[in-house]
Amino acid sequence: MGSIWTREHIISLADFLPAEYDIVLQTAASFQEVLSRRVKKVPTLQGQVVANLFFEPSTRTRNSFELAAKRLSADTLSFAPASSSLTKGETILDTAKTYLAMGTNIMVIRHREAGVPQAIAQEMDRLQSQVSVLNAGDGQHEHPSQALLDLFTICSVLEPKQPKIELLQNKKVTIVGDILHSRVARSNIWSLTAAGAEVHLAGPPTLLPKLFADWVSENQANSAIPERKLFLHWDVEPALKDADFVMTLRLQRERMTQHLLPSLREYHQRYGITRARLKLCKSGVKVLHPGPVNRGVEISSDLMDDPEFSLISQQVTSGVAIRMALLYLIGGAKS
């Protein structure tokens, strides 16, 4: 397990290869099994320090990483921006170097702006520190662990014992909502298309600009991955037709003041996921949401709680196993 893993940092899924996805899924499956035991802890990262540097406040993702690290017996440190020195003239690199000096092995980094985990990873490499950096969400750029847990959740639905990406071959996955501002969507586009799924994006033109098609087609040629199948829709119905999985995204209220949408009401009418709309999908369709959900905006409130459709709580559970897998692969596997 993990024998061909060579990646030191996990910043983006843009250049992830099919074999790497499979390693992550298999590793997560074995940790999922650990989590079902009576003693849900393994000594894999004993003596290692995992620092959660969350420059942007987050409770759910931070707790998920913290629990994952603890289940692997790592020591954890947390950085909270409210009590930080960032307002006192310290730079992001100064903060990272402080945690390096404390002997941190893995830095899990979230920042409200794109590029910060990459900048810190570059600095750690420049210092030849051996520290691994894991992007826990940077601005509108990427959120690799979320996309990987989505992938794991979907594959586990298709084949609980042996999740692997080939299960997604020619499956239709529809992502609905504010694609433009979504780091979750960007990472998911990379992972799902690499797995061979047909990915359909749906949203109003202001939140789903045509540039998304250019972005993927421009990154087609220089990749070891077979042709990525990505489709854009400004009407939600054709996007949902015969879909196997539907992923909805959180809609921020501030989009109204940016001239991107007239109202949440009209958004829900045109793009909200409802029972009626799910009838367009394949029978047995499942719905995912990265959370937190605006009930009644991106998805009807009752659908969210309906286990026949909703995978939302499985996503949260999968999150811990996936994050254990990622910490293990970049931390434990190489030492």
Partner: peptide, 18 residues
Amino acid sequence: VGNGVMREGADSIRFGLS
């Protein structure tokens, strides 16, 4: 220009920058 920090295009979408 708004809060844009790089030229809008396929690269701004990819890098997640306004």
